[in-house]
């Protein structure tokens, strides 16, 4: 039965940083509003695939350690996009496997513990969360204080409305494939620029030859990277637009890889840009993890993106009943 957002999941504890995210807020960067949305879009899509939802439906983005939730509607099917310690409390059953869905009845409690692989996982519910969009999206943009639960992270006592009062018929599914959850040790691929011309050949070589470490001062705005400095010939440029994946270099020479809650523009030169297939990997990097970069050209990046799209489109053939 369709309901107009009846409370369906009661938040008992919120976890470290759990926010409502969807495919993001589009078309407003010209006004200074970043896209936000899931930091790992592949996790979002696959969680929604398992839940039987449109790919960009609103889900919970769990960071590090997840929430405890109590079911307050007739039943709900939850799907775990990623690999976390997820169990149904006070029941002897096995934990929820990575990349699988599970139907829960009223009163049952789901505890999402530590994210085991990567940094984030996604929790989709059948029908999607019924969170009123703000400026076209349900995504939480913490710095702007909009979207999701009043523009903030979840907290204990919140009630999350869902679109369906009852789990749709059919079996709970799992993915018969193991998509990446951790960001592997493979280098992140970048296209140099747009402002690579403001860096010396030695600085460009250093970017591609050095290991950087993800700083604990990283968030959905950007990953601060610590390593050999990359001095630019000019430290301030006329502010221009950024993208998710832009690698800007601050006055101290340290790079920051921008994520989805980034400023839409910035005054630091951007030495390189992470290619679109590797942007979801940025959302999986944990503080302390090493990062390396390798350079490709635009045509290679476009080829890799088309191949990745074919791979993801084929994932629906890998759905199996549990």
């Amino acid at each position: 039965m369709m309901t107009a957002g009846a409370p369906a999941l009661r938040v008992l504890t919120a976890g470290l940083l759990t926010t409502v995210q969807d495919g993001g807020r589009r078309g407003l960067q010209r006004y200074g509003v970043p896209p936000s949305g899931a930091a790992d879009t592949e996790g979002l899509w696959l969680a929604n695939l398992l839940a039987g939802n449109p790919p960009d439906a609103a889900v919970l983005e769990v960071t590090g350690r997840g929430p405890r939730l109590e079911v307050a509607c007739t039943s709900v099917r939850v799907a775990l996009g990623g690999d976390a310690d997820a169990v149904i409390e006070a029941e002897a059953g096995p934990p929820l496997p990575a990349w699988s869905a599970q139907t829960l009845r009223r009163g049952q409690r789901l505890r999402v513990g530590t994210v085991r692989s990567g940094l984030r996982c996604y929790l989709a519910v059948s029908g999607g969360l019924a969170i009123d969009p703000v400026l076209g999206s349900s995504s939480t943009y913490l710095r702007g204080g909009i979207g999701g639960m009043s523009g903030r992270a979840l907290r204990a006592g919140d009630e999350l409305p869902v679109r369906l009062d009852e789990a749709p018929p059919g079996p709970d599914l799992r993915l018969d494939a193991v998509p990446a959850t951790a960001s592997s040790g493979e280098p992140l691929r970048v296209v140099l620029g747009p402002q690579d011309g403001l860096f010396s050949p030695a600085a460009l070589a250093s970017l591609l030859a050095s290991a950087y470490t993800v700083s604990p001062r990283s968030d959905r705005v950007g990953l601060r990277l610590v390593g050999p400095p990359l001095p630019a010939t000019t430290t301030e440029i006329a502010s221009d637009a950024c993208v998710t994946g832009s690698i800007q270099v601050t006055g101290s020479g340290q790079p920051i890889a921008l994520l989805c809650d980034r400023g839409t523009t910035g005054g630091y030169p951007k030495i390189a840009t992470v290619i679109s297939v590797d942007v979801p990997r940025l959302g999986r990097l944990r503080p302390g993890q090493p990062v390396r970069f390798s350079s490709v050209d635009v045509a290679q990046a476009e080829h890799l993106r088309r191949a990745r799209a074919r791979f993801l489109n084929a994932m629906h053939e890998r759905l199996r009943p549990r």
Partner: peptide, 22 residues
Amino acid sequence: LETVPAIGSLLVEYDPLQTSQA
């Protein structure tokens, strides 16, 4: 997909599955 005007430049964001940079 969208454009972002700055003071000296315009960023044009596109879907690489629908077009190419060339």
